[in-house]
């Protein structure tokens, strides 16, 4: 078949298929209107931390190492009840990226390792913050496995 004729027939196929689609839509029990009445709400995913962070047992002696920076992903009041005093408090918000100033603060600590403690829930805010810090370029980032409840069980809660 010559190419010119094939192209014309291809255009006819498109028209035929389109007409078939319109006809099939008319006989549906729930036809789709030809024109959308309102704009579609396309999904915008939340910022997703994709870095790698290692879980750390709450009994791990590295938690008491002076070269470790303990970061709390909890709010200030919750952080005060942690059995170990966090050097930094960066309350984690699932809907917002960690502020650049907070990341700079962690980087400025020049710690051998950064250990994040969160709420220990599923998902764990500590793990999320740790992964986001790793994603933003912080190295040797860990998170306390089980979060604040596990840390309290291992070290005893603070009054």
């Amino acid at each position: 078949m010559p190419w010119r004729r094939a192209c014309l027939e291809a255009a006819a196929l498109v028209l035929a298929g389109g007409a078939l689609g319109l006809a099939a839509n008319l006989v549906r029990s729930d036809p789709l209107p030809w024109r959308a009445a309102a704009a579609y709400e396309t999904l915008v995913p939340c910022p997703e931390p994709i870095g790698e962070a290692t879980p750390l047992d709450p009994h791990d002696p590295a938690l008491n190492d002076p070269r470790t920076v303990l970061v709390s992903a909890l709010n200030a009041a919750e952080s005060r009840s942690l059995p170990l005093v966090p050097r930094l408090i960066i309350p984690y918000d699932y809907l917002q990226e960690v502020a650049a100033a907070d990341v700079r603060q962690v980087a400025a600590a020049r710690a051998a390792r950064v250990v994040v403690v969160g709420d220990g829930q599923r998902p764990d805010s500590g793990e999320q913050l740790a992964r986001e810090l790793a994603w933003r370029g912080i190295r040797n980032v860990f998170f306390v496995h089980g979060g604040a409840p596990a840390l309290a069980a291992a070290h005893g809660g603070r009054p």
Partner: peptide, 10 residues
Amino acid sequence: ITLPWIEIVA
């Protein structure tokens, strides 16, 4: 509405 039927025909 139309694209899937064009795919079916082709």
